[in-house]
Design a protein around this nucleic acid. Structure first.
Lengths: 144, 144
DNA sequence: ACCAGTATGAGACTCGGTATCATCCGATCC
DNA sequence: GGATCGGATGATACCGAGTCTCATACTGGT
């Protein structure tokens, strides 16, 4: 899971002429260890917890850069703050379920849905770069 | 388009025991005249432009109430602010295309997509209350 | 080791959204 | 119609996510 993304990303940025400062590497390594989306604040806290004192501004800077370059995806589940997650080069790709009670966010993937989205995207008149799907509801725990 | 929603909503709130103050009615009437989503700020400005000096707090209060009751849907297209639009009782329902260049937001609807979503929703383990789909890309004008 | 220029972190700042509170006004009772 | 009660309203203080700025630290090349 973590395997390739972290090193691929660091390498690709290196090739693109970016210097490898400590903060950028730390954020990328932490992101590479995740399997679902994190908020900027969670990344900041996670790094502090590891004893790596990055500035919040650097976290946003790195996320911005990675977003531009397509290495992370920005996700908006509507809680007033953005979430970020690694984009794996395999093209594998998922969407999110949000529990409106406890705030939990989970991932799901569905081929039928992707096909339907792809079909729609061709007929919009936009050149569509990406899509987000968020299902809102109550998770198994909360609906009990 | 505007037809039923405005009066339906005002009536339903009346039946639910809410008093019909001027600000609430003004917000509902303005929303009823729209065919796509507005930000709270746009609603606020729109009402000021009409000479109806509502407070921004009232706009949010009304949107909150209408959201709870299912009369408006809150939409997050990721520009750092929420958008709101009327939910028509017909069940008719659409999603959004966002131009990442100019920020324009448009609506689209697709039955195949709805079917695919519905199918996924049954298999998640969540009791899904709703879904949002956002397609991001460049509109016809901007991609030219 | 030196230099040029990028990366970083602290903190000020912006702005969407929320909370508070005194005042207003609509509905009801008389 | 007028008094009264309680919800509705608007101004404003406040909060917090995210951005901007700038002095300093560090990287990579020489």
């Amino acid at each position: 899971m973590t395997c390739g993304w972290t090193s691929d990303t660091i390498e690709a940025l290196g090739r693109a002429g970016y210097r490898s400062g400590g903060a950028r590497r730390a954020v990328i390594e932490l992101l590479g260890r995740q399997d679902c989306c994190l908020t900027a604040q969670e990344i900041f806290d996670g790094l502090r917890a590891e004893g790596r004192a990055v500035g919040i501004a650097s976290v946003y800077r790195v996320l911005d850069l990675l977003g531009e370059r397509g290495f992370v995806q920005r996700i908006d589940v509507g809680a007033g703050m953005a979430r970020f997650e690694p984009v794996h080069s395999s093209g594998e790709h998922h969407h999110h379920l949000v529990c409106e009670d406890c705030g939990k966010v989970e991932a799901f993937a569905d081929d039928g849905l992707e096909r339907a989205l792809h079909k729609v995207e061709g007929s919009t008149g936009y050149s569509v770069a990406g899509h987000d799907v968020v299902l809102r509801g109550a998770c198994a725990d909360c609906s009990a």
